[in-house]
Amino acid sequence: MSCLDFRRSVLAGPGLRSMDSQAHIDECADCRAFLHHIRGLESRISEAVLVPVPEGLEERILLRNESRPRIRRARYAVAAAILVTAGLLTQGVTQRAHEPALPASTVAADETHAAAMAISFVLEHEPKLLHQDQQGDPAVLRESLARLGLRLPDGETTVRYLGKCPVPGGTGDHVVLFGPWGKVTLILVADQRVPQRSIVSVREQVAIAAPARDGGYILISDSLAQAKRMEDMIL
């Protein structure tokens, strides 16, 4: 094997070694040094490509593709619809006593409604995500908000988590905010149509879904008043 052949094989795959190449480096000090050099480079390349993987990526993929038994889905859909209806009739199934009644724009929703899906995501995945202490880049959040004509809440509010989450037809920005009155989750949906403003109440949570520019936003909280306060701050 010539030096050129040896070096060509090393550059094509530093981890590969044939008997011929082994025989060559036993005899050729220059190529031995070359191999050492390229392996050092390979080690640095391997480290350089290790960009951080977003927290919760696996869970978001599984959530988006999960396929529950049909009977469970149907039962869940009915439960959601019943709770929403109950909210309309009793004016407060999911609300605190001092809060205003759910408005007339409250909709009966099944589990495929974006707001109902957002509530499910928050209940099932957010507790685990919050443990990851992923505060995200405020500049990225500000940019995402600006794309929808929204703004970052004021200094009284802190961002506890910033990541991605599934939304119907794609992926949204998932932001967990803590204000003076508690936690509110904000999901930003870019480049996808969000129908008219609606309020959905499911599983003791309330979600406000509304269009904004080329997309929309969903605010989820255990209190309608809290969600509305946060909405006032981002609009």
């Binding site: 030096c3 094509a12 040094a33 070359f34 050099h37 390229i38 480079l41």
Partner: peptide
């Protein structure tokens, strides 16, 4: 063709290796 592309890619990145002193031209 794959081997050639890999070779060229590594050559392009080789400028960032810090242990170049020992590398000499082919005999």
């Amino acid at each position: 063709a794959v081997m050639t592309r890999l070779t060229r890619a590594r050559m392009a990145l080789r400028g960032h290796s810090s242990s170049r002193a020992s590398v000499r031209a082919i005999r």
